[in-house]
């Protein structure tokens, strides 16, 4: 089953629009309060530190360390059946956000604290997702998402 049948993000034009637009350009963008500089992730409508509603989107690092992870031996959506075992990792990136993506190496090798670099892959026209690559497998950071996969 092709990857394009994955569940697509439901909010590509609202609150999450800058995030998903960033992914298509090879960037991870997170919210930052324009008033107090608090980093907000996941995105929301108001800063919980100072209650400002003026929130910027800033580029986060494409490299980070694995904060936590999972390995799925069962698929709970049909698009993932032929990808098993499937590694999913939550990666801590500067300036302070935890970003979920899929793991590009062998899921058996995932370790908390491991350094990984983001690659971006297209799942549908205008939709890109993150694949976290272990440093020994990662290629120099591509600026554009690859279209195969």
């Amino acid at each position: 089953m092709p990857e394009s049948t994955r569940p697509a993000p439901t909010d590509k034009s609202g609150l999450y629009a800058p995030y998903f637009e960033g992914l298509t350009q090879g960037q991870i963008k997170v919210q930052q309060c324009a008033n107090c500089s608090a980093v907000l992730w996941p995105p929301q409508d108001m800063c919980p530190e100072c209650y400002a509603t003026s929130l910027d989107w800033v580029e986060a690092s494409n490299e980070g360390t694995i904060y936590t992870y999972s390995v799925y031996n069962r698929a709970f959506h049909p698009a993932f059946k032929e990808l098993l075992p499937y590694g999913a990792v939550s990666v801590r990136v500067s300036p302070g956000a935890t970003i979920l993506g899929e793991y590009g190496g062998d899921p058996a090798d995932i370790e908390v604290g491991q350094t990984v670099r983001a690659e971006f892959f297209q799942t549908a026209p205008g939709v890109a997702l993150i694949r976290w690559m272990p440093s020994d497998l990662s290629t120099p950071a591509p600026n554009q998402p690859t279209t195969k996969e």
Binding site: R6, P7, T10, F20, H77, F80, L100, E102, L129
Partner: peptide, 11 residues
């Protein structure tokens, strides 16, 4: 909104 946007796309 975290689920359909940040989690479902990764199964």
């Amino acid at each position: 909104t975290t689920k359909p946007n940040l989690e479902y796309p990764y199964g």
